[in-house]
Design a protein around this nucleic acid. Structure first.
Length: 805
RNA sequence: GCGGGCGUGGCGGAAUGGUAGACGCGUGGGACUUAGAAUCCCAUGGGGACACCCGUGAGAGUUCGAAUCUCUCCGCCCGCACCA
């Protein structure tokens, strides 16, 4: 008998059997206990599956396998997110058409995912680049267009000079392009937007009820960035009919507003300048336009110039000067602020630099009214504020808003950090936006029956940087007829953002073969919302926010009966190596293929899960993986050696250990604490190896509990134990709480908080008996002063604490 | 600057108010072997006058009892960042 553990042979054998028997496919229409187990589908890069993907998918797959053994009909689909700038840029670099490139990458990814041993329902795989898929991406665009949620308008937008396209706000990271790290500039362009800001309140408020990792909820709350305050109008001195609107969260400090500041791009700047200031103002505006976003934001030193104009502070009637400065952002609020240097640090800096008056209008705690040496930004009591004097900040805010509304100089207002979603891209590799421009009929949506608008198969797909997509250079694509009047018309040549493709893929999985609908109403009702979604934190405000928005909008349009797509979302951690992030430049990237070859998928899966808590990630060590490999070897040999034995009765200790292990592993797997689940299995194995005899049931339990982690090895051992195929369809073991109760316990005795004795006692003793036992111990008595009065704290079966003080 | 997380042996980590360091790596010793590999067994936080003391980033506090709760400080990681 060959008893060597040969992962390569075992894994190949069972992968083939799983495929032949289709055990991971689900009868979607008739499933009794549907459980939708989702993970973030990958971007099929040329480098192949990253170990980060392996980590993410393994953790989610273990969850799916566990749910299946709990009797759920688990649907665990997989797909490929293959449109977008990343693969397009790579294709340009290599001079290979992205279509060719992606096909090869997808093939490679599928092989690797199969080697990983995931329980994927491959018959429902989707590829976002498939016309049968993006046809429905275009369909969603059209529904939004018809509902007025998709609009084309001119706006200042982020422009990546290297990718030669616009970017959504979420794709600009500290002033740089998310994809290529180039510095992003601003351009005023006509673009397509999805009006996600209309949903800002719902996107924010729904978070309270979602079972999601807190990190993600916090990130979304911050990104949406709702703030409540007022919009106030300051009339111009020169022309009382004109006013500057400002947004403030502190209307209570309006009496302290000693000047106004406009963003350099503000439309009223032209009206304000005087012959004396004109040259300086124009120079500043020009300079601001040239500076990159990063430069403007980076420097803490504030710059600005006086426009020459004055406004009236409507609260105290004083004339105050109007400045322009680039610390005020055109894109936020109204692009203008009332500067309250006494109570805002930025305004304080600016006022100090340009010698502007600083007035205190909020007294600090204990009525502190001293002269300010720095901005006082906390709350307090209003002073020097006319009718608001003596009111605490919160009340003064309300009073100020009321007063503004009564006098018609402003109103309550709420604003958001969230911007509308810019979805058009001047690129080739994406779904064409299904719109036609007609001189007579205007902007017309492509009729649904004409979808998909196919992406033409062309040789030259390199972006030109003219602000137009490469598609604009293809007359056969551009020239068309108007669907409405049949006259000559031009197609939209921009493609949609890659994040639109991935904002609905999980709706498509169950309906992947449906040619009539984007998603079948019955299947969708049965399978959605998703039961469990696991993915990376990096998508906290990109994918996860867009997805929620798309579902909410589809719900409002009557296509979905839920508004939140993911009931439960868990963010997994990040794998590092040697304490630092893996990157090509550091040369510390783990190539999964190497480890599949050397140890097998079961070992790599288990090791990745053993490195640390799944939600926190871990440190990959080439030596550490040996420990898991040894563990699986020991499991293999123990089971093989004892498989033939009859179901002999095991010792009570082993029985209790078995039940304890079932409980620990079950609870840990439920809580994604895979590292401690494996530790419990190791302890169990150690216990079985030490035991004089091992019963059949002990081995079966070991195999069942290990099955989600090491699916191939356990399948092999399940067969060796004479059980019927498949271990992955067997029932998860249960434990008996009565068996867990130990007959003897180790009871710890503390004297004044220090551990002095461990007593082996029968379980369930009352306090009097425990005291008696403790006071008989020399180790305890030694620390008890003569004649001291003693106090006792008793924790049954755990501890007795004796206090002498 | 704001928000979130983290800080425990040589290393990854366990313990979320009750035996600090489970489990694994590494290391030392032993068994088996002609030898090695593999495997198995024992030991492994520091100190020590060995029936003890110290120890969870630092300091204080609450408690019979704190890695765990509270406050202050230091350090690291992640997200956002002149958001009015």
């Amino acid at each position: 008998m060959n008893t060597t553990y040969d992962p390569t042979a075992i894994e190949r054998k069972w992968q083939q059997r799983w495929q032949e028997t289709g055990i991971y496919e689900v009868d979607l229409a008739h499933a009794k206990q549907p459980y939708y187990n989702l993970m973030m589908f990958p971007y099929p890069s040329a480098e192949g599956l990253h170990v980060g993907n392996v980590y993410a998918f393994t953790g989610a797959d273990i969850h799916g396998r566990y749910q299946a053994m709990r009797g759920k009909d688990v649907f665990e689909p997989m797909g490929f997110d293959a449109f977008g700038i990343h693969s397009e840029n790579f294709a340009i670099k290599r001079g290979i058409h992205p279509k060719t490139l992606i096909a090869g990458n997808v093939r490679h990814f599928r092989e690797q995912l199969t080697r990983l041993g995931g329980r994927f329902a491959w018959s429902h795989a989707v590829e976002t680049t498939d016309p049968d898929y993006y046809r429905w991406t275009q369909w969603i665009f059209l529904q939004f267009f018809k509902a007025g949620l998709a609009q084309r308008r001119k706006a200042p937008v982020n422009w990546c000079p290297s990718c030669k396209t616009v970017l959504a706000n979420e794709q600009v990271i500290s002033g740089r392009c998310e994809r290529c790290d180039s510095e992003v500039g601003q351009r005023e362009l006509e673009q397509w937007f999805f009006d996600i800001t209309r949903y800002a309140d719902r996107l924010l408020d729904n978070l309270d009820h979602l079972d999601w990792s807190d990190v993600i909820k916090t990130a979304q709350r911050n990104w949406i960035g709702r703030s409540d305050g007022a919009e106030l109008r300051f009339a111009l001195v020169k022309d009382q009919a004109k006013a500057i609107s400002v947004f403030t969260t502190r209307p209570d400090t309006a009496f302290g507003a000693t000047f106004l500041v406009l963003a350099p791009e503000h439309p009223l700047v032209g009206d304000l300048k005087t012959p004396e200031t004109e040259a300086e103002v124009e120079a500043y505006v020009r300079q601001a336009a040239e500076r990159s976003q990063e430069d403007r934001v980076g420097g803490q030193d504030k710059t600005g110039v006086f426009t020459g104009g004055y406004a009236v502070n409507p609260f105290n009637g004083k004339q105050i000067p109007i400045y322009i400065a680039d610390y005020v952002l055109y894109g936020y609020g109204t692009g203008a602020i009332m500067a309250v240097p006494g109570h805002d640090a930025r305004d304080f800096d600016f006022a100090t630099k340009y010698g502007l008056p600083i007035v205190r209008v909020v007294a600090g705690p204990d009525g502190d009214r001293s002269t300010l040496t720095a901005a006082y930004e906390d709350t307090g009591t209003a002073i020097a504020s006319g009718p608001f004097d003596g009111l605490p900040t919160a009340e003064a805010k309300e009073a100020a808003i009321r007063l503004a509304e009564e006098r018609g100089i402003g109103q309550r207002h709420r604003t958001y950090h969230l911007r509308n979603w810019l979805i058009s891209r001047q690129r080739y590799w994406g779904p064409p936006i299904p719109v036609v421009y007609c001189d007579r009929c205007g902007t017309v949506g492509v009729p649904e029956e004409e979808l998909p608008v196919l992406l033409p198969d062309v040789q030259d797909f390199v972006p030109k940087g003219t602000g137009e997509s490469p598609l604009a250079a293809i007359p056969s694509f551009v020239e068309t007829t108007c669907p409405s009047c049949h006259g000559p018309a031009r197609r939209e040549t921009d493609v949609s953002d890659n994040f639109l493709d991935s904002a609905w893929y999980f709706l498509r999985y169950p309906s992947s073969h449906d040619e009539e609908h984007a998603f079948d109403p019955d299947l969708t009702r049965k399978w959605l919302p998703v039961d469990s979604y696991i993915g990376g934190k990096e998508h906290a405000v990109l994918h996860l926010l867009y997805t929620r928005f798309v579902c909410m909008a589809l719900h409002d349009l009557g296509y979905l009966d839920f508004e939140e797509p993911f009931e439960r979302f868990r963010a997994h951690g990040v794998i590092v190596r040697g304490g630092t992030k893996m990157s090509k430049s550091r040369g510390n990237v783990v190539n999964p293929d190497e480890f599949f070859d050397r140890y097998g998928a079961d070992t790599l899966r288990s090791y990745l899960m053993f490195m640390g808590p799944y939600e926190e990630g871990g440190d990959f060590s080439d030596q550490g993986i040996e420990g898991i490999y040894r563990f699986l070897n020991r499991v293999y040999h123990l089971v093989r050696k004892n498989a033939g034995q009859s179901a002999s009765a095991a010792s009570p200790d082993v029985v209790r250990l078995r039940h304890q292990t079932i409980r620990r592993v079950t609870e840990d797997v439920e809580g994604l604490k895979y590292n401690t689940a494996l530790a419990a299995l190791m302890e169990y194995l150690n216990g079985l190896q030490r035991a004089s005899s091992v019963a059949r049931e002990d081995l079966q339990t070991l195999v069942l509990l290990l099955a989600p982690f090491a699916p191939h090895l356990t399948e092999e051992l399940w067969q060796a134990l004479g059980q019927s195929y498949s271990v992955h369809q067997a029932a998860w073991p249960t434990y008996d709480a009565d068996v867990l109760v130990a007959k003897t316990v180790t009871l710890v005795v503390q004297v004044d908080g220090k551990l002095r004795e461990r007593l082996q006692l029968p379980a369930g003793l009352d306090e009097a008996a425990v005291r008696e036992a403790a006071l008989h111990s020399d180790a305890v008595r030694r620390f008890l002063p003569d004649g001291a009065s003693l106090r006792f704290v008793h924790v049954p079966d755990r501890l007795l604490s004796i206090v002498t003080r």
